[in-house]
Design a protein around this nucleic acid. Structure first.
Length: 260
DNA sequence: CGTTATGTTTCACT
DNA sequence: CAGTGAAACATAAC
């Protein structure tokens, strides 16, 4: 389920479980999840430790005591899991590290869209992958600058990781619902105030989601996530939520509430 | 059985 | 170069 708030939670989880422990084994059941050879991962991880983590958007960077930084992307169905007994290895824990203390760390990835990579530097990785600053830290100036030259639907823009790293499909729908902007509104036809309202809603959605540990049921009652599905109705208007495709992704919005 | 899923990358076109 | 739509990746769950 990982977008920015979920990955934020994963970072906290890893920080509180897996730092400063010597890694003694790496097991990978499907090498397609590794962007480098398994032996290279072993060289860089075995007998080393996780030192600290950093998050940009949906990417998690783990600094280690080796010269390389581990890059983790969770894909659509990834999450970390730390447990004591090997027998508790989760069903989809395709990559597992074992620590010297006897505990294990699994990278769960049901759909196998997630991956691990190794990089020399976070800033180079960020540049190579055209990642913007993390959406939580992004300035209004930078946001406006990357939006200004664009001529397409606002939803595609805010999901563009080079515009606001960390915004994914559900967050984009929520942000546009909160700012009352229609998902297919073209950015070049939006006023400066409307762009700012999207920016403000993005910040609000991020903070609310993080405060609630990305647990949607605890979100405020006027959040789209409570009725983001077919047949449900808008909290404000009572009208039926509509479902369309934008940029290839399923999109839910409230027709009268979000003006085109 | 067919459809759908919270993501990224690549590619053939406009 | 900017942008688009589609496809590919891989698999569980409904």
């Amino acid at each position: 389920m990982p977008e920015l708030p979920e990955v934020h939670g994963y970072k906290t989880y890893i920080d509180s479980t897996s730092l400063h422990q010597r890694i003694i084994a790496l097991d990978c059941r499907d090498s397609r999840l590794l962007k480098q050879s398994k032996s290279y991962f072993e060289t860089q991880l075995i007998n080393h430790e996780f030192k600290s983590t950093h998050r940009i958007g949906k990417y998690l960077f783990v600094e280690t005591t080796s010269e390389k930084v581990l890059v983790i992307h969770f894909g659509m169905t990834g999450r970390p899991n730390y447990y004591k007994s090997e027998s508790d290895r989760p069903k989809f824990g395709h990559i597992q590290l074992s620590f010297e203390n006897g505990y294990h760390f699994a990278f769960e990835n049901k759909r196998k869209f997630g991956w691990w990579d190794l990089t020399d530097s976070i800033s180079n990785f960020k540049a190579d992958h055209k990642l913007s600053d993390d959406a939580r830290d992004l300035s209004l100036e930078n946001f406006k600058a990357s939006v200004s030259a664009r001529k397409t639907d606002i939803k595609k823009i805010i999901m563009d990781q080079s515009v606001a790293a960390g915004v994914g499909n559900w967050m984009a729908d929520e942000i546009l619902y909160q700012s009352r902007i229609h998902p297919t509104r073209r950015v070049d036809q939006m006023t400066s105030e409307e762009i700012e309202s999207v920016f403000d809603a993005m910040k609000k959605v991020i903070e609310v989601a993080i405060e609630n540990d990305a647990h949607y049921r605890d979100f405020p009652e006027d959040f789209l996530m409570h009725f983001r599905k077919e047949g449900e109705t808008c909290f404000h208007t009572g009208a039926e939520i509509e479902k369309i495709k934008v940029g290839g992704r399923t999109t839910y919005f409230s027709p009268e509430w979000q003006k085109k």
